[in-house]
Simulated assay, not measured.
Amino acid sequence: MRRWIKRGLLACLATVLVVVAGGFVYVYTLDLDAQPPAEPDSTVADLAFMRDALPPTRGKILAVVTSTSHFPGGEKNAGFELTELARAYYVFRANGYDVDIASPQGGSPPMRRDDEDMVEADHAFLNDADARRKLVASLPVGDVDPARYSAVYFVGGKGTMFDFPNDPAIQRLVRDVYQAGGVIGAVCHGPAALLEVTLDDGMPLLRGRRVAGFSNAEELFLIEDARARFPYLLQDRLVEKGARYVEGPMYLDNTVVDGRVVTGQNPWSTWSTAEAMVRALGHVPVARAPGRDERAVQVLAAYHAGGIDAARKARAERPDADKRLLLMHALVAGMQGRRGDAWRLQGLAHD
């Protein structure tokens, strides 16, 4: 996800620096090199929360990814987001669930990855022979038996907007799992899978339900002509289908639970969406220490909720929060003309 933001940032960086009157000179004193990226050779054994993983005796969860590799016309990449699969995959595994992977077409689905976004769990997934085997031989959704799964989780990615909503096999999967008492989860663009689902009683699954999903503001910030490129904007279509859309701040964790339907707004909602699904299944999630990226999101959430004083307090309690993510939000604020926010947020990165 950050690669989309980064492209816009690179295009507008000079303007941003002028707008904030040189405030980002502090970037050079941030010592970003003191925050090395996650090791590419990370394995499951390096994931602390997986050391307390429960045996896979609670059932199975199906993770569904898109098969659409490009936007119509073929000039822009689509696919699914690795981070939104890998992190949820290990949350489910840690909490006693086996995980299968499916896609509309089956086989090896188109993956989107950004090394700057990746944490240990993402690299561990790529180095996990069993996980990669499941991914490259993903099950065709039409061949899946919904009765085998306690929950289904729809991974985000731009491609979902094209092949999830009108797939009758996905609609059947959601309907059958939900009506059997299972949990439905989705993150970022993943809720596109729920748009056309109607239950056996004729009631649309989304009608009157509180949900999250990638917001119009987030989409249009990244892709100015998103209304032309996509058949719809997800937030708009969720509302059109009768959902009560719950919008959080841009690019911060926002997970919404409505009964047995759990939805997250963006990639930074992946951890909380997966853990909320575990709770909806009736279990307390295995303890997991938040990573640097999550700690940065917590600082930013404190800023949006309580202002700079609350953010500084949160920052002091999280000295290892990801400075790059804090700075990214400062740049986003600058690009949106929110000069005060840009200045204060880059200060948090410097603290």
Rank of each mutant, 00 (worst) to 15 (best):
P231N: 00
L234D: 03
Q235W: 09
R237K: 13
V239S: 05
V239D: 00
E240S: 09
K241T: 11
K241W: 09
R244W: 11
Y245S: 02
Y245P: 06
Y245A: 07
V246C: 08
E247S: 15
E247I: 12
G248P: 13
L252V: 12
L252T: 15
N254D: 07
T255Q: 00
G259V: 07
G259E: 02
V261E: 00
V262F: 10
T270S: 13
S272L: 09
S272G: 07
S272I: 08
E275Y: 14
M277H: 10
R279C: 02
A280L: 04
L281Q: 00
L281Y: 08
H283N: 04
P285N: 01
V286N: 11
V286G: 09
R288F: 07
P290N: 05
R292G: 03
R292H: 07
E294V: 11
E294C: 08
R295A: 00
V297Q: 08
V299K: 06
L300N: 10
A305Y: 14
A305G: 14
A305S: 15
G306Q: 07
G306H: 05
G307E: 03
G307L: 02
G307Y: 03
G307M: 04
I308N: 00
I308D: 05
D309A: 12
A310Q: 06
A310V: 01
A310K: 08
A311R: 06
R312M: 00
R312L: 01
K313G: 03
A314H: 07
A314Y: 05
A314I: 03
R315D: 03
R315M: 01
R315I: 04
A316V: 13
E317H: 14
